[in-house]
């Protein structure tokens, strides 16, 4: 079974839990005392990831780090439909890569602001918030035009991709960092659509719109 070195309040770890829940992949969560223990910075954990960050997955001995790389791996290996990471379609795969890079931006702005407010990380909070709004405005306009074509996801296919999974947590938790979404109606409609994907699981701080899987609190196997 896949093991994930995990922290329940990390957006990057949540991206993996959400993907595995949607793909119905059982996994075992290994809780890291990220805060206040800083276990991911310990010498012991650096044997698992010398960069000292989570998530890291261990899939039967195959180790992989970095949230967006793990999404690519999970979708490539565990999605038999090939829709979540559409490698057979050059345009779609290009768009997916483009929006995965965009997700690096939302993580480094919106989710950085959240870390500053919640856990006291020393970031330039005004720069983080301004950066998040700049990206949200771009995504808002993009999604609005998608809706005019009766399409609901960040890439131009009819199905969501890992790019939606990569961006969603940074957006849905942005208010915790003081980045309000009131001016982004298309963005809010999109987050509701993500919440309705079968197999959707929330994390603490996110509320489902309908039936969802329960948040696991055991730190045990998720099946």
């Amino acid at each position: 079974m896949i093991k994930i070195y995990d922290y329940i309040l990390s957006v990057n770890c949540y991206k993996q839990r959400l993907m595995m829940s949607i793909l119905d992949v059982p996994f075992e969560s290994i809780p890291i005392d990220f805060y206040p223990g800083w276990e991911h910075k310990s010498e012991e954990f650096k044997k698992i990831n010398p960069l000292g960050h989570i998530p890291v997955i261990d899939d039967d001995g195959f180790m992989l780090r970095d949230a967006h790389a793990i999404l690519i791996y999970l979708a490539s290996k565990y999605d038999p439909t090939g829709l979540w990471y559409p490698t057979n379609n050059p345009e779609l795969i290009g768009e997916t890569a483009q929006w995965m890079l965009f997700a690096e931006g939302t993580t480094n702005t919106a989710s950085a602001a959240r870390l500053h407010v919640n856990l006291g990380y020393e970031f330039d909070i005004e720069a983080c918030r301004a950066g998040a709004h700049r990206l949200f405005r771009v995504l808002e306009e993009h999604l609005w035009f998608r809706e005019q074509e009766n399409l609901g996801w960040v890439c131009s296919g009819e199905q969501p991709t890992i790019a939606d999974i990569a961006i969603f947590p940074d957006v849905i938790l942005s208010e915790e960092g003081g980045v309000a979404r009131i001016d982004y109606p298309a963005l809010r409609r999109w987050t509701d659509r993500v919440k309705r994907i079968p197999g959707f699981v929330p994390m603490p701080g996110i509320f489902p719109v309908g039936d969802a899987r329960p948040i696991s609190h055991e730190g045990e196997a998720n099946a």
Binding site: L9, P31, D33, G37, E39, E175
Partner: peptide
């Protein structure tokens, strides 16, 4: 400690919004 903290932090994170 890690296990117990995780539980409490989850609860608190649900209250936060």
């Amino acid at each position: 400690d890690s296990f117990i903290r995780r539980f409490q932090q989850s609860i608190f994170a649900q209250d936060k919004p």
